[in-house]
Design a protein around this nucleic acid. Sequence first.
DNA 1: CGATGACCTGAGAGCGCTCTCTTGACAACG
DNA 2: CGTTGTCAAGAGAGCGCTCTCAGGTCATCG
Lengths: 367, 367
Amino acid sequence: MVNIKRESALTSEGGVRLNGASGRNRRNGSTLEGVALLAGVSRATVSRVVNGSPKVSPEVRRDVEAAIERLGYVPNRAARSLVTRRSGSFGLVITEPTGRLFSDPFFPRVLRGISAELTARDLQLILLMPNSKADVSRTGDYLSAGHVDGVVLVSLHGEDPLPARLSAAGIPLVLVGRPLRDVSASYVDVDNRQGARSAVEHLIATGRNAVATISGPLDMPAGIDRLAGYRDAIGEAFRVTDATLEATGDFTQESGAKAMTRLLAKRPDLDAVFAASDLMAAGALSVLTAAGRQVPQDVAIVGYDDSPVAKSTHPQLTSVRQPIEEMGREVARLLVEAVEGTDRVQRRVILATELVKRASSAGRHSP
Amino acid sequence: MVNIKRESALTSEGGVRLNGASGRNRRNGSTLEGVALLAGVSRATVSRVVNGSPKVSPEVRRDVEAAIERLGYVPNRAARSLVTRRSGSFGLVITEPTGRLFSDPFFPRVLRGISAELTARDLQLILLMPNSKADVSRTGDYLSAGHVDGVVLVSLHGEDPLPARLSAAGIPLVLVGRPLRDVSASYVDVDNRQGARSAVEHLIATGRNAVATISGPLDMPAGIDRLAGYRDAIGEAFRVTDATLEATGDFTQESGAKAMTRLLAKRPDLDAVFAASDLMAAGALSVLTAAGRQVPQDVAIVGYDDSPVAKSTHPQLTSVRQPIEEMGREVARLLVEAVEGTDRVQRRVILATELVKRASSAGRHSP
DNA sequence: CGATGACCTGAGAGCGCTCTCTTGACAACG
DNA sequence: CGTTGTCAAGAGAGCGCTCTCAGGTCATCG
């Protein structure tokens, strides 16, 4: 009795739906039930077809597909997600207030990489940009509530509470960039150390003897690693590193200019500078020019990031290019693996950089 | 009988859940049912409390809230969305292949504005960056399927099929930036025309007589409007505009340099340039310097965007600053209104710009 | 003092989907 | 010829939530 009543109600409803949108908010009226009715099969069979189950006979499959096509049926993600407990979406958390995020195209490029990979797999990216402490907490609530299948964290600061919270909640997590503190999560990074090293080796190879550096902030992995790479190259070439050739900035142009001023005061004999960002390199360049040093004749400069700024200075900056899109793709791949696989192995993927040579580091005696 | 059985089953399940995660994938075991059991009320009442219904007595509300707190209950969005037919999320579509998206911080800033506004309302942002024609089509499928409550479109190109498709599907739509073709959707834009006009008026006010412009591409609203603003100011000051003072670029630095070369050839007497982007201004600056013109003494320059590049040139560029975050916030507000309200009125919101004066346009005779 | 609201609260149906379990058909086997 | 196995397809029970209706409790009023 109950069954019959239910069925008939559904049948008539199905009919209504076929005629177009019934209630408000009903974007696409067709449901599994409607398709099943039209194809003359059960809901379960339609579900099998939609999800590509192998145990459906070819004829039935054909009929069902025709019905789906005719009704323009699209599965309701909410309903599916309710039972599968998978949302088909990933959270991307950006906690960078301003700074790097806005001063170079790093962020959109990572995004594009991640997005490309997820789109290909029919997965969605949910963007979260907490602005305040309260926001961070809410973001944590949201992510822990199981609304996403996994999380990408960008620009992790030391005291960020999110990684611990998420891994406690058992949510797959991948970081963009090596975290400062050791957190139990996979991450993808570019080889900052090797990138810096190759830049400095290039300067040395073109005949520079007093190679200074303007490092990034030493509380950020990118700052630390690029300084380490600089020291690697210097140490290998000259056996010793020299603190008077090192100054610290914060990746901004002003900080680069100030650091350059300090370096010139300490070491008027320097003949090359490796800056850990293009912006700092640009700042250094303006100070050098103002001080009457010719670039690259008197002092060579190499920047980092290969950002648009590198091409807007005069002379244009030699710079270290990073495979940022690829980094994003790799992050997405890692995350999907973590969600689908059962192993909880943490992975570290480090991508190689490339030195782009321009006028600012041309050899002393070359044209 | 059935009821009792059902209740008891749930009770025992509830117990299990209290002890922690039961099955895999169960992030947070507590449900409305569990909270109701603990608080000694019905599911419906808990639902009322959660959704802030006024018709709940203070004592009951207190009890329920305590139970929610104790269980760490978080509503399941999928279940809610299944019945409300609202997803609580908006799609953000970016169809810009490279160009502007990566050469200035416009995009992250808009994003931040949108995100701030949505986060405050507990709504989610789903990012979609179609890379190919096929991607665009899939994106359209996704958005039309009712998985989002509304859509933001950024950087609309002329032949983009999305607006028509979405408005046909009845999905609220807001555009970032005025579209080239007239589409039936609300949009938010900055006042490109007035921004350009004020820049040129500034040049004229500081004694320049032959003010040239390097416009953006004339198939983009930003390019068209900024040129119109230039002509407004010139027309008003001199009664006529002069085509020999106009050259077209594509917002990039190289195009700015080339346009400047052309302008110098046509009008060696020019004493000011308004470029429709900072990058083009930077390109123009390098050409002028190479040609032996002093900036700002011989030729003044004003850029547009107030991007980091504006501060990296020498001299630094006067530029038109746009309220980009605010633009994002406004977009989000419009969209939320469109979803919640019943009126389908299209709105156009135009935000004012601000001229940031720097050395590149200092008066001819000032220090 | 019974009737009338006003106000809370509970019962129950269902949103659209997945997935287990069962059924039914048919072939192969002893 | 009965038994067993195999495979396709259906029945039905939920997933967790919202929302309509119905009921129950009081204070208020004629």
